[in-house]
Design a protein around this nucleic acid. Structure first.
Lengths: 179, 179
DNA sequence: TTGGCCTTGTAGCAATCGCTACATCGCGCT
DNA sequence: AGCGCGATGTAGCGATTGCTACAAGGCCAA
């Protein structure tokens, strides 16, 4: 059993897994190194400094997220905006997506505070989701582009309310609005 | 110049000010103590442990937020849902609200990750905002309660998109939806 | 005055933080 | 064989973390 070659590329998956499981708050060099079966020394060696490592990991995770969207896309389009939203919210509730969701709010918080690298990752993920949403809009939708932007807004608002224990509020609001 | 008496009540305003300015990430005992003109020793003495301190500070900030909403409420109701949303988003863009906004996403992130005390503060703030929104709904609105829930969802989604550099997406979505 | 309690200062603990100096190892090139 | 260089381990630095032991001040009641 030869030890796996060490590089950014072989490190990133393990680092991303650790960040997805434990969050960015506890993403310090030694725990990360342990998760990647290396030493903090080598993480600095390969990434230069921690800030760069986090940036790279967030970019890598954004890539995973994008792939997950692609994987979920195969099915046929939705037949209505309601169905479209319902599908996405259902996907967000899946246990497999939970680590993404929890991490997502940390990224948003970092983005809002201007932490380097966070905004780029957040922007990328939102752009991917928006593009994906456009492909999922009903075929006969009068305004798929604008509609996708609108649905994205409602979806993210709904997810946020769920994150703070107001899932019911979001649900009742969507019912009241006909969505 | 007698030194101000030291207690939870006299400490909280200064602690809250520091948290609003610098965020929860750098809210460690020594900086907080310096901001409150005391020592970390005394913070622990008065609050027991840091977790309790943070919980109390978040509760205090939620109170400030509530008061800010009340202060902004004086004017007459909106005449349409569009105007209602526009007002609130305009208020959220005000420089004075910026610290609240930035802190808000840290609270959401903590709530999503289950950090003790965060969820309660977030839930309280959302409930206050929802109640306030209901009072701001147009007088002739067919469903003020459900409408307020719907508008809250859209508003929070819009604020999130703004926080990650997608303000334009949110704006275009609202235009496309007629809001 | 004395005793006791609430409050406060000083000092320090063990743990963790990001990062670095130094030495070593192994591989390829000449 | 010898040399050079990238990759890695060991050890440690100074700073910061939450928290505590100990002593001393200040004030009120007996």
């Amino acid at each position: 059993m030869k030890p796996a070659p060490l590089s950014r590329e072989t490190l990133l998956p393990k680092l991303a897994a650790h960040v997805l499981e434990h969050g960015l708050g506890s993403a310090s060099l030694r725990p990360l190194a342990k998760a990647a079966e290396t030493s903090d020394r080598m993480l600095i060696y390969h990434f230069g400094k921690k800030e760069q490592l986090i940036t790279d990991v967030l970019g890598y995770i954004a890539g995973i997220y994008s792939a997950a969207l692609d994987a979920a896309m195969g099915e046929e389009r939705a037949t209505s905006r309601q169905q479209c939203i319902a599908r996405i919210l259902a996907q967000g509730r899946e246990p497999a997506m939970q680590p993404f969701m929890v991490l997502w709010w940390e990224i948003v918080a970092g983005s809002a505070r201007g932490v380097p690298g966070y905004r780029e990752a957040a922007e990328q993920m939102m752009s991917e989701l928006l593009a994906w949403l456009e492909t999922q809009m009903p075929e006969d939708d009068p305004d798929p582009v604008g509609g996708a932007r609108y649905l994205l807004t409602v979806i993210e608002g709904s997810l946020m309310l769920s994150a703070v224990g107001h899932a019911r509020t979001a649900r009742e609001g969507m019912i009241a609005s006909g969505l």
